[in-house]
Structure formats: C-alpha cells, structure tokens
Design a protein around this nucleic acid. Structure first.
Lengths: 194, 194
DNA sequence: CTCATTTCTTACACCTTGCCAAAGTTAATC
DNA sequence: GATTAACTTTGGCAAGGTGTAAGAAATGAG
C-alpha cells in the first residue's frame, strides 16, 4: 500500500509508482472509466506492475485521491492563514483548494463516489478540514465570527459552499467574478461575520 | 427512453418496466455495483428484458434517478409553499426533499456521479430547483430575504447546504435536531432573513 | 380468435479485473 | 564489479460483466 511499515523501496519502484499516478490523474480526468490497462499503458508500464503497487483498482483510485489531496494541501499551506482578518484567510484557503480541485473536475466527481474506508477517510477529511477549522476557530476567538453554530458544521458548510460556487462557475451559470463574490458574501453571512 | 414519441405500450411492457425500477432502487441502494443481471433477477425478469427497456446500464440508472426525482417532487408538492413565512416554506421544502433522498443514501451518492447529458439534466435540475426558486423569490419580493445575491446562486447554495446537513446527520456528526437547527440558522443567515 | 408485441432461452463476442508463475532487468550492497 | 534481492515483463487463465442477436413461446389488444 502507501507505506508498508518503514521499508525502503527501490528507486525504480518509487519511480514506477509516481509514473502510474502521474499518468492516472490526467487520464482519469479525461475518461473516468479508463481501465487499469489503459492507465498502465499511459504510464509506460505493464498492468501487472500497476497491480504490484496497488492491490486493486479501487486502491489505485484511493492513491490518486491521496495525491490530489496532498497537492491541494500544498497550495493551501502556501496561503498564510494566521495573518489578517480570519475572513480573508478563509477565502484564500477556499480559493487554494478550489484551484486544485478545479484542475480535475471530472476526476473529483468520480473520486467523491469512492467507497469510504471508515478510518482512512478520517485522515483525508481532517487534513483539509482542519486547516479550515483552525481559521474559523481563530475568527470565533476574535469575535469576528458568530459562535452560535457548531464549528464542525461551519467547516462542512464552508466546504460545501466552496464546491457549489466552483460548480456554478464551471457550469457557466456564474462568471468567475460573480462566483467569487457570491461565495464571499455567503460565507460572511453564514459565519455571522463582524 | 421514458416516452418514445407517443406510442401506447402494452400492459405487460409497462408492468415490466415498473418492476425493474421498483427492484432496482432498493437493490442499488444496498449494493450500488449490482449488475444488470442482479437487477433483472430481483425484478423477476430476464436480463434481456431489462435491455429491451433500457438500452444500457447507464440509461437504466438515469431512469432510476428520474423515478426518485418524481418521488421527491411528490413529497415536495405536498408541502404547501405559498402559505406563511417564506423561510418556513423553504424549510418544509428542504425537509421534503431530504426525506426522499435520505431514504436511499448510497444510491443518491452513486447517481450523483452519473454522466450528465446536457439537455436532460436541465429538466431534472429545474424540476427540483424551480420549486425552491419560487419560494425564495417570494421571500425576496416580500422583503423577507435580502436580494443582494443572485437568486440562482441562492437556490444552489440552499440545495447544497441541505445536502451537507443531511450528510452530517447520517454520518453521525450531528443529531437530527442539531442538523435541523444548524440548517435553519444557516439558511436564514445566507438569505439575509430579517 | 388472430396478430403484433413482449418476453424468454440460448448463445456469442468482447472487455475488465485479479491472480499466478517464470523469465528477464535493474538497483542496492559488499 | 559481482552477487543478490527487488522489481518488471511476458504470457496466460478464470470469473464475471456488458451489449447484441435470433428464434421460440407467451401474452395482451383489437
């Protein structure tokens, strides 16, 4: 799987794994039903090599999701979250996440329907949500946000509104500017800002 | 598909179609990857009969989605939407929709990842969203809601918040009462209710 | 009752997932 | 640099799913 205890894998193994994921992401985004064989071919590798790294198709998809999550986290951490008004930090955070997710819309759609291994999802959810949570909690502490709703709900609602705005934009029902503005106003209202 | 021009189909054909959909819904909800053959068997029918009614697996799933949408619309129309405060009507509406969708959580998850035939989705989206839109527009006219955001965005945001509350509840992160309350407060804030 | 529609049976071609074993290659280690 | 273990490839197999087809049997409509 991702990291069997601590063993050091050979260089070509790591490279193959990376090649597979690198090829899988754009391919699955273009054609979400792409077969394992198609992914292997796109990666310049044999199907059996894929199975050497990922026990099943689903675990491959899970690894793809992990990769994308890391990518998003990278962009998120580039936005400094402890500076300035919590509302602004929140918007920067949402924007960073949306930017990554927006790069692979079809893929995100597919991955969202993945079976949820109870423990594992927690980690991914936490990784993204915790950053959001920290910012929201800062806003609550400083009185910038209203604390009459549970923090975890505010986190979930913020994420889902971010998704919605992203979708309205890619569906062409809102321009990029309109979507940004709608999301901004909506979040401020939701959080009972100021 | 649903209604080839206007021909009158034989009684047993209509019955078979209904049997298939009736069987497909609970089966797919329990096991979203169920094969066409499994669905046919559950319906007491042959696989070829299924293919006689639905050209492909995906079109069968689309028909299932249509069926569920009708079901939800039925419950939605049972709640009278033109009476009392728009906010209350909105909550009744959301609740009706959530009740239907909540009956088949796994299935909804799967169906949400269906390929979207551009024209066709419009009809379904409109059917549900229009009812929401009408209520929201009433609230805007009466000044009950704030009109500084596009109506269509408010509709989309309302739907997505409804989904989120539903998920938080089924995931056990919020009790039913907490979810209701969180959704109520959030919607009122989002809509800028006075 | 007759006929057209619908269903059932049987069958086929094709694709995908997973698995296995043996033979080749490549990188790590001494 | 040679040895050894890890990794990849080649080739192949079984199970199961989708989609299509043709003829026989059943069933509803007129």
């Amino acid at each position: 799987m991702s990291s069997p205890p601590g063993r050091t894998r050979r260089a070509d193994a790591r490279r193959s794994r990376a090649l597979i994921l690198d090829a899988a992401i754009p391919l699955l985004n273009a054609r979400p039903e792409a077969s394992v064989d198609a992914i292997a071919t796109a990666a310049g590798v044999t199907r059996q090599t894929v199975y050497a790294h990922f026990p099943s198709r689903q675990q491959l998809l899970a690894a793809v999701l992990d990769r994308l999550t890391e990518e998003a986290l990278g962009e998120m951490d580039a936005a400094d979250l402890d500076t300035g008004p919590a509302a602004d930090a929140l918007l920067r955070l949402i924007d960073a996440g949306a930017r990554t997710a927006g790069r692979y819309p079809a893929l995100m759609q597919k991955l969202s329907a993945l079976p949820v291994p109870p423990g594992e999802d927690q980690a991914r959810h936490t990784a993204v949500a915790d950053r959001l949570k920290r910012v929201i909690e800062r806003g609550l502490r400083t009185g910038e946000f209203d604390d009459r709703l549970p923090v975890d709900w505010l986190v979930a609602a913020t994420i889902t509104l971010g998704h919605a705005a992203s979708e309205e934009r890619t569906a062409g029902r809102l321009s990029a500017a309109e979507a940004d503005e709608a999301l901004r106003v909506s979040l401020l209202r939701l959080l009972g800002a100021k």
